[in-house]
Amino acid sequence: MSDISAEQVRHLANLARIDLSDAEIATMTTELGQIMEAVASVQAVATPDVPATSHPIPLKNVYRPDVVADVIPTDKALASAPEHDGSRFKVSAILGEEQ
């Protein structure tokens, strides 16, 4: 179950957009294998009759009224941007297609 290959780690790093070095991939492949072994025990007790819990305190129907608030001015929003054109955030050319 926890046989993790370097190729897999490379794929995960790509999904997570982290340009890991080869050395990091090697280390992480070993570590990830160890970690997954250590956590694999969860599968033993997670039987089909046990429901999953995603929120520690069960709540429902938490809503906000449809009223404008919290708007931040453009200059404040752009102030921390690595690059902008005065009104929009600027990024390098995009390789992929429109999503």
Binding site: M36, V42, A46, P51, A52, T53, S54, P56
Partner: peptide, 15 residues
């Protein structure tokens, strides 16, 4: 299912 899903079930058991 094997990992995240199982872990959320353990959460139920802990609760």
């Amino acid at each position: 299912d094997a990992y995240y899903g199982s872990a959320q079930k353990v959460r139920t058991l802990v609760q």
